[in-house]
Every structure is written in C-alpha cells, then in structure tokens.
Amino acid sequence: MKEVDSKIVKNDPNFKELIEKRTKFAWKLTISILVIYFAFILTIAFKPSLLAIPINSSSVTTIGIPIGIFIIVFSFIITGIYVRRSNGEFDTLTTKIKQNLESRE
C-alpha cells in the first residue's frame, strides 16, 4: 500500500471502528472455544469419571456423549456467528473505507 493511502485508511474513523469491534469479537469467540475445549480435555485428564455419569438412571448413554456432540455443534455455530457478522456489519465498514479511499485519491 502506498504511504498516502495508508494514512487515509489509518485515520478513517470507520477503520478504527472496524478494528476495535472485529478484534474484540474475534478474540472473544476464540477464547470461548478454547475455554470449552480445554475444560473438556482437562476433565478427561484429571477427572474422567465426571463424563461417565449416565444421563438418567435407566440409560447407558453418559453425559459425555451430549457434551462431546455439543462441542462439535458449538464449533459450527460460532463459525456461523462470526461469518454472519463479518460478512454483514464488518464488510459494510470495509466497503466504506475503500470508498473513502477512492474518493480521496
């Protein structure tokens, strides 16, 4: 990127808004998946019996199974949440930044 372009983009309030919101959003989601996954893995390492509890007294299905399936489904859902907001709100901001840059040149 040319230096003059960099300056325009950097000082664009839309850019500041984009970075602030998206960075926060991305890290929030990253931390949520890491916390859930490591909680799961550390439970397996330290206290696997927790996952061996049956979902009810007459069933052989353990709570570990819905929990595992939940992590898979959760991974899919948060990618959906991220893509939805990025392709909508964040891309609108990016388009504004680009238009602003083109009009200034």
Partner: peptide, 21 residues
Amino acid sequence: GYDGLIYSIGFLVGWPIILFL
C-alpha cells in the same frame, strides 16, 4: 467407543480458530 469422539473433537476445534484469526 468414547475415546474416538475425543479425537474427532480435537481435530475439529482448530477450525473456528483458523477462521477467527
């Protein structure tokens, strides 16, 4: 049995992180 699921989950959770970062 269940141990196979632990594996699958490990293989999957990298994907959201690839997306976000």
